[in-house]
Design a protein around this nucleic acid. Sequence first.
DNA 1: CTGTTAGCGCATTCAT
DNA 2: ATGAATGCGCTAACAG
Lengths: 350, 350
Amino acid sequence: MPMMKSNGDNMTIEDVAVEAKVSRSTVGRVIGNYGSVSENSRKRVQAAIEKLHYSPNAVAQSLRNRRTNTIAVVVGSVSNRFFSKVIGAIENEVANSGYSLLICSTNEDLKTEVRHLRSLLSRRVDAVILSSLQESIPPSELGLYNSEIPIIYIDSAIPNVCHDLIESANYEGTYEATEYLLSLGHRKIGVLMTSLFPTVRQRVEGYRGALAAHGMPCDEKLIVDQQPWMKNLGRQMLQELLVLNDEVTAILILNNNLCDDVLLGLRDLKKRIPDDISLMTWDDTAMNDLLGITTIAQFPELIGKTAAIQAIRRSQESNNSKQKEQNLYIRTLKTELRIRTSCKALQPKV
Amino acid sequence: MPMMKSNGDNMTIEDVAVEAKVSRSTVGRVIGNYGSVSENSRKRVQAAIEKLHYSPNAVAQSLRNRRTNTIAVVVGSVSNRFFSKVIGAIENEVANSGYSLLICSTNEDLKTEVRHLRSLLSRRVDAVILSSLQESIPPSELGLYNSEIPIIYIDSAIPNVCHDLIESANYEGTYEATEYLLSLGHRKIGVLMTSLFPTVRQRVEGYRGALAAHGMPCDEKLIVDQQPWMKNLGRQMLQELLVLNDEVTAILILNNNLCDDVLLGLRDLKKRIPDDISLMTWDDTAMNDLLGITTIAQFPELIGKTAAIQAIRRSQESNNSKQKEQNLYIRTLKTELRIRTSCKALQPKV
DNA sequence: CTGTTAGCGCATTCAT
DNA sequence: ATGAATGCGCTAACAG
């Protein structure tokens, strides 16, 4: 009895060809469904494939075709609520089109972002969807951010880099929110943020813009900005804000991941919302609904889906169409101010 | 002037060799850091690499080495809170070891699970971490679940399949929780669950087990079991439970993703926790803390990290060590009952 | 309709 | 210390 290949795996076209008593190319024809092949051969090949449980080696295909059918997404943190929804939407879209999805997390670190990008290029992914921390591309990495493989940015653009972008209206969303608080009579509006994120930098400008538009000075002491590597970050920032400014009547949180912790901090401080202090945050959740927290909502699923569609489209464009600059895809999604009960109208002082 | 290759990309070893005026093999030696090469050659090669921005084509490497340095994880839903934490932990671990991570979502569909698995095998990933919906492997798919490539199961074992497994103590966790409710005097404990998930099926057994151990009959009407494809699922199930059983004093939620919606439903019904009804759920969140919801906590990060470590270990084992059966890695993580304020002690009826 | 052949880019053995 | 040559598995152009 002849030696069998141990497992259904690692079968090659050659094995199928032998089994079906045809040449490799004929097998290739029935698999790739091109050229023409006699009914007889076709049946034999299919039988052989069935029998051997043959499935093509995608690595070899990729090498040959110069396409990996893989999209990558790189974000700060996979488990972040916002990103996990974005990624979920990307996965669905991408899988429906027959692609696989690689995910990379930078842990909010620039060097890691660059490392991942390098690795993705060498893996020849067909496109990458990137939430970048870069404010500007260092000349040394220019090749990375400007390579043949298309990059779709989400969240924020990098100045002077020509690229597709799907983002939320960070400035406008915060502007609108700030105006709302002003309309309720709030004048001392504390801001909690982590300016490491480009999105957040845009948001705080919206805050400043709204104040300016209403002829109000911006008190910098009201803006607490800390980097996100601390435990209980929200609590800390809350403390800092309230110690410096006991007259704060409202808090505006610019990063979603701060809110839980701020709420916990407020509870410890026995501050009630909205009676003692008003509160508003970015990114909606069931908890916000339940607790009646007024929220600036974005649409992560839409961002993910849109980015995925564009990534796939780009990955299928003929590479030489370097007219890319001519048809940049830029989409800025409106946010939605969901007014609930966490912001109180202030009595005008008598 | 000679034609330049357009971009820093798509450089091959050959290009480097030409630039450095050595042979391909010498370039290979300095890149792969093996054999021996003169200092002079080495420097020239390194200069060439630098100049051309050469980076090896990982696809070709994979084909040659029969390793892709890729791990895959397949779960029901990427954006699910539990899974997104598991995935985050996997990503960190895997990236630290120089692997990339592919993610696949099955949307809780068996066919999709099989499709993904097939694709992953053909992509020759080095290992897969799988949260499977299978109750038993259909013979036709046996090859898939028993291929050369190692599978690490998370969440639940498939009977009669020999494999590594990282799971939480689903039975015991629910058993303990049920006993706790019993000790508070609750006798009519409603259960909300989606038995599609193998984990949940284990959990409900824990509930039954605890009742039995205390000599209590299990009233099947108290167990509401629905498949997860409905909107506002938690609300619906809550309705169903309360309509059928107005004497329910406590609710035990067995899937994390139901809780938000149940809470919303309770609010609409104007039922207060714990005064009108007691509530307990699986999987902890900041919201549970904030709202004082007693919780059976699992440790998704630990599950993810452990699974990733094991996946990497398996991927590096010599393939012929088919003694795998001899050294199965099975780890059952204890859960933690976090008692807060959502469960009230009942007055014994006078 | 079918088989032969030549790469895709890399790692490695063998000869020098 | 170095170069030549082979093959990983697949696709596709070419020849018959």
